[in-house]
């Protein structure tokens, strides 16, 4: 492994530990710490005449303020560093970071912030919020399945469908699909 890869692996730990120092206001919500080592932010994109591309973002931080009694009061914010994309090939990574796709130099962060939470059933909620990608903010609904693994630990798996054209990421369409499937699996600790 190169020094760069090692940096990518450890960066989430640093970012995450820096992000949660002062969270948690005077309300009923409790701040949860995301465990970077158990968090995977993956995406899948299809193309015509090219294999399905699967990748991950390795650098991110997130804030979870959860209220299990009143799920609608919960808030989630997540920021992903665009240049931390990893698809298993450095030249492919560079292409995706470049101006035709993520344009990471001009738009370093991909950001999601919930505005509303709707409970679907006992374990599933819809997080409704705004995704900012390439500087364009559009509403996004994220379906989240939450499992309590104990009093102080939860796991969750989130799915969202992103239409990249809505954010002005048009390159390669229609050879490369407009549909990007996003999956975030993570665990978080209370406090």
């Amino acid at each position: 492994m190169t020094a760069i890869s090692a940096g990518v692996v450890f960066a989430p730990l640093l970012l995450a530990s820096a992000a949660f120092g002062g969270d948690g206001g005077a309300d009923e919500r409790a701040a949860w710490r995301i465990e970077p080592a158990r968090t995977h932010i993956g995406f899948v994109v299809d193309a015509v005449g090219f294999p399905r591309t699967r990748g991950e973002f390795h650098v991110f931080n997130g804030r979870l303020s959860l209220d299990f009694d009143r799920p609608a009061a919960s808030r989630v914010a997540f920021t992903v560093r665009a240049d931390s994309i990893e698809v298993g090939s450095s030249s492919f990574n560079d292409t995706l970071r470049g101006s035709n796709f993520l344009d990471a130099q001009h738009f370093p962060d991909i950001h999601f912030e919930s505005t509303r939470v709707e409970k679907r059933d006992e374990s599933t909620v819809d997080l409704i919020g705004d995704l900012t990608l390439l500087g364009v903010t559009r509403p996004l609904t994220v379906e989240v399945e939450v499992k309590r693994l104990g009093a102080a630990r939860i796991s969750f798996v989130a799915h969202a469908h992103i239409d990249r054209l809505a954010y002005g990421m048009n390159s390669g369409f229609p050879i490369i699909s407009r549909d990007v499937e996003l999956t975030v699996s993570s665990e978080a600790l209370a406090g």
């Binding site: 591309t53 298993g88 090939s89």
Partner: peptide, 9 residues
């Protein structure tokens, strides 16, 4: 029949 990264490379 390769994965996307190998094919790209």
């Amino acid at each position: 029949d390769l994965d996307a990264a190998r094919k790209f490379d």
